[in-house]
């Protein structure tokens, strides 16, 4: 299972890097979504995949009985997903705004803040 997830993560990262190297910033954003999901899977996999029970504590006990799954990586992934979603939404709106006000999605042509004839 770990091997399968590792390969999946590898494929996701490869696809993401390919997309992020594009000059079109919309492609870049899609790459970013892929790589942030790859990062979430890294946390999930690194937290060990066990066939354990859900970590529920039976009534009257102080600790779970038997082998239970580690819930922490999932909590971390959940937090990361929520944050990532917010950032992605912002980035997408920013790109749309960039398209309407700069008239381009090509990163090479975004030279308003740093004009070519600037400096020397």
């Amino acid at each position: 299972m770990e091997a399968l997830l590792a390969v999946t993560i590898g494929v996701l990262v490869a696809g993401a890097v390919y997309l992020m190297l594009a000059r079109n910033v919309l492609r870049f954003i899609f790459g970013l979504v892929l790589i942030s999901n790859a990062a979430n899977l890294v946390i999930f996999t690194a937290g060990r995949l066990t066939p354990g029970e859900p970590p529920l504590i039976p009534e009257g006990a102080d600790a779970p009985v038997g082998t239970v799954a580690n819930a922490l990586p999932q909590a971390l992934v959940l937090t990361a997903i929520v944050i990532g979603f917010g950032l992605f939404a912002f980035a997408l709106v920013l790109m749309f705004r960039a398209y309407t006000s700069l008239g381009t999605l090509q990163s090479d042509e975004m030279r308003v803040a740093e004009p070519r004839d600037d400096g020397l």
Binding site: V25, F28, I29, L32, F90, A91, L94, M95, R97, A98, S101, L102, S107, M110, R111, V112, A113, E114
Partner: peptide, 10 residues
């Protein structure tokens, strides 16, 4: 600002 923002954010 939008132009600088794209680079900063990404």
């Amino acid at each position: 600002q939008i132009d600088g923002g794209v680079k900063y954010v990404t």
